[in-house]
Design a protein around this nucleic acid. Structure first.
Length: 487
RNA sequence: GGCGACGUCGCCAAGUGGCAAGGCACGGGUCUGCAAAACCCUUACCGUGGGUUCAAUUCCCACCGUCGCCUCCA
């Protein structure tokens, strides 16, 4: 079975065949950096993180581009988001952009999201955007209004609406379109806007001083780094219209070839309102929960597992309780990993317990089968849970498990759980000196406690365990020794 | 109103034309000095009503309900 991807363009799963064998070019619409990222962003970027990780696991050479939007974007009031924020903070727009771009990467790093290969900024690609607009004007797909704004004429492009399955004219009388309308048609969208005097973010252009429309940046930057046609375009489903639709129209009108071959759109993250009804988490609704907040009480792996617990195309309802459940689940898996590593410290040579290799092989098959089916992460995670039960059973039995098998188990977790899903961290064995010192100190206490227990001095033994617990170190006694973990 | 997604065990969530993975929670049990962890066992006929079929949770239709987009938002 080959990898299947649900292609939003055709609304069905299709075998994935990249443009160039062995290589994948991929573009994902990034955030507008004017505030801290929230869990909704985590859902989208984590989803594509898994896509990139899995494609690489499958041997593809992936070139991953994700933009940062730092221009444009008007509020209802006609005010630019970034400008508004800058005024509130009494800072320059570029300070705001820089602050929140850093914050975004901080959050993504914390969540273990692999950085894109290229993170182009819209503000750094104004010439490319202008050039693309000129092409559209040359080809007569765009026009300059009497107020000097440049618009894309959607009626000149018959395929407009094909991605989001919309027909022109369907939207009847757009009640909001009446204000300052210098377009030919209400559905036309802006490529370049002339800046009002108070608009600080402004660039020179053939049409006067202004700023680019929201959609043009993605067309220009994907073209620059990935070419006229590339393999995968990702983003949040909530941007299918108008943003994604406009991207396709602009790019294909300008270049005359297919824009993105596979469109993958991630489902929306919802959050219950006061009455318990789930609604979209968004900045404008003010019902958002930042990633930084989420990470205060939960491990990044818990956030990952929470989001991986449903398919990337499905909507998902956020709650702290859901995060709790995910973290419990993670502790289960990571407990098994810890046990394997512990056993490995003094495992006998040889391949005792070799039949278990079969379980590993089956796990891998199930995992790959699930992920090959349009990145079915919940199925892949389920394979890991099943493996985990088998691992516990094996390691709690009297069966002597040799080093070779333990290493194979460890490697399976490392690759499937670590490399692909990002929920298992690398061993800390080669960690910094203070990590090793901590490990040594705790083991020293465990030894002292073991002596106390052997002497039936349980009060003393319990005292040590209790105090360690208060320090966030949990001890678990097993027949073959004591293992420890930090919360 | 138009377009789209969805409705599976208490909660979350995969999945298949032939009697439904997994996680969390709950109950019972085993192990343990105690604790913790783990393991074992028990729990669903898949929104409602029709239709197609030898057979549907899985296909079709209708209805009910929920969400997203149609306006800046991942």
């Amino acid at each position: 079975m080959a990898l299947q991807i649900y292609n939003v363009v055709h609304r069905e799963k299709e075998p994935f065949e990249p443009l160039h064998e062995g290589k994948v070019s991929m573009y994902v619409c990034g955030p507008t950096v004017y505030d801290h990222a929230h869990v909704g962003h985590a859902k989208t970027y984590l989803s594509f993180d898994i896509v990139v990780r899995y494609l690489r696991y499958r041997g593809y050479d992936v070139l991953y581009v994700q933009n940062l939007t730092d221009v444009g974007h008007l509020l209802d009031s006609g005010e630019d988001r970034i400008l508004k924020r800058a005024r509130q903070a009494q800072a320059t727009p570029m300070q705001i952009v820089e602050t929140f771009a850093r914050s975004y990467f901080e959050d993504m790093d914390a969540l273990g999201v692999v950085r894109p290969d290229i993170s182009p900024r819209a503000s750094g690609h104004i010439p490319e955007q202008i050039k693309l607009i000129e092409t559209l004007l040359d080809k007569d797909y765009a026009y300059v209004s009497d107020q000097g704004n440049v618009y894309f004429d959607v009626y000149r492009w018959p395929e407009y609406g094909k991605l989001s399955n919309r027909r022109l004219g369907d939207q009847e009388a757009g009640s909001r379109e009446e204000v300052r309308d210098d377009k030919r048609h209400p559905e036309d969208f802006a490529l370049w806007k002339i800046a009002e005097p108070e608009h600080i973010l402004r660039w020179d252009s053939p049409w006067g001083i202004g700023y680019p429309g929201w959609h043009i940046e993605c067309s220009a930057m994907s073209q620059k780094y990935l070419g006229d046609t590339f393999d995968i375009h990702g983003g949040g489903l909530d941007n299918i219209f108008p943003h994604n639709e406009c991207e396709v129209a602009q790019s294909e009108a300008a270049n005359g070839v297919t824009f993105a071959r596979y469109w993958m759109l991630a489902g929306t993250l919802l959050v219950p309102d006061q009455t318990g009804v789930p609604i979209k988490m968004s900045k404008s609704l003010g019902n958002f929960y930042t990633i930084k907040d989420a990470l205060k009480a939960h491990r990044p792996e818990a956030v990952r597992l929470f989001i991986l617990s449903s398919h990337y195309r499905s909507p998902i309802v956020f709650s702290l309780e859901a995060l709790d459940s995910a973290q419990k689940g993670w502790e289960r898996i990571s407990g098994a990993v810890r046990l394997v590593r512990e056993k490995l410290r003094q495992a006998p040579e040889g391949n005792g317990g070799g039949v278990f290799l079969d379980v590993l092989e089956k796990t891998k098959q199930r995992f790959v089968e699930a992920m090959d089916d349009d990145f079915n992460a919940p199925g892949a995670v389920a394979a890991l849970y099943d493996l985990t039960r088998e691992v516990y059973t094996l390691l709690n039995s009297d069966q002597i498990t040799g080093k070779a098998v333990l290493e194979a188990i460890r490697d399976t977790y490392q690759v499937l759980g670590g490399q692909v899903l990002g929920i298992i961290r690398d061993e800390t064995a080669a960690g910094p000196a203070n990590v090793q010192r901590e490990d040594g100190l705790i083991r020293l206490l465990i030894d002292l406690r073991a002596q106390a227990r052997a002497a039936k001095e349980f009060a003393k033994a319990d005292q040590i365990r209790k105090q360690l617990t208060e320090l966030g170190v949990t001890l678990e006694d097993r027949s073959d020794g004591t293992v420890w973990r930090v919360d």
